[in-house]
């Protein structure tokens, strides 16, 4: 198990390989469809400092607000990353992001971006909402809550020992590509 503290250097991220199990700690940012569209089309500045050498989390959480107005995460597993495929490599390179957490993996364009700009794809366990929310220690800030709604807002959160597996690295390695090719071959035999 590798422990990584955010911000992460390019050197540290490039040393990771497919299959590495990692515990992430530090400040990360949730972003889904609306957020990615915005980051590509308008390149907003408000999120830049939070993303530099940090990690994007594909997640639309269930949140709670206390009477004093403080937010906390109740359930917060990953969402399907494939929807961000058109945007991801542009966002990673534009904002110098070192990692993307999600589920289901991403495609060729993202893999190329990870190599070019020095980042990896971290896979979290889909559906493990309550367990992962336990790793979220603090909600530091939220952007675009009113406009995008709870799931789509940018939540800036502090995590501790967030468990993930590297399934796409910065050396063109992709577990998703491997499993897809293998299962297609097996399918040909089964049909």
């Amino acid at each position: 198990m590798i422990k990584l503290q955010i911000p992460i250097s390019e050197e540290d991220i490039r040393s990771l390989k497919v299959g590495d199990e990692v515990l992430l700690s530090g400040t990360i940012v949730t972003a889904r469809d609306e957020a990615h569209k915005l980051m590509v089309e308008e390149k907003p500045e408000f999120i830049r400092e939070h993303l530099k050498e940090s990690v994007i989390y594909h997640c639309g959480p269930v949140v709670k607000q206390s009477e004093s107005g403080e937010w906390s995460f109740v359930s917060a597993g990953p969402t399907t990353s494939a929807r961000e495929e058109p945007y991801q490599s542009t966002v990673v390179c534009e904002y110098k992001v070192r990692g993307v957490i999600g589920k289901g993996g991403m495609g060729a364009k993202t893999l190329e971006g990870l190599k070019k700009c020095g980042a990896v794809y971290f896979h979290a366990i889909g559906g493990a909402g309550t367990l992962i929310a336990n790793s979220v220690k603090k909600v530091k800030e939220v952007f675009k809550l009113e406009e995008f709604g709870t799931p789509e807002a940018f939540w800036v959160i502090e995590v501790e020992d967030f468990p993930v597996v590297v399934t796409m690295d910065s050396h063109e390695g992709s577990l998703h590509k491997e499993v897809l090719e293998k299962s297609k071959k097996i399918m040909e035999e089964l049909l």
Binding site: G77, G127, A128, G129, T130, L131, A133, N134
Partner: peptide, 19 residues
């Protein structure tokens, strides 16, 4: 992880999955 999460969600009465 799935089984741990399922148990924790039941105990805390919080959503198994955020979706």
């Amino acid at each position: 992880t799935i089984l741990e999460n399922v148990e924790m969600a039941k105990d805390k009465s919080t959503p198994i999955c955020q979706d």
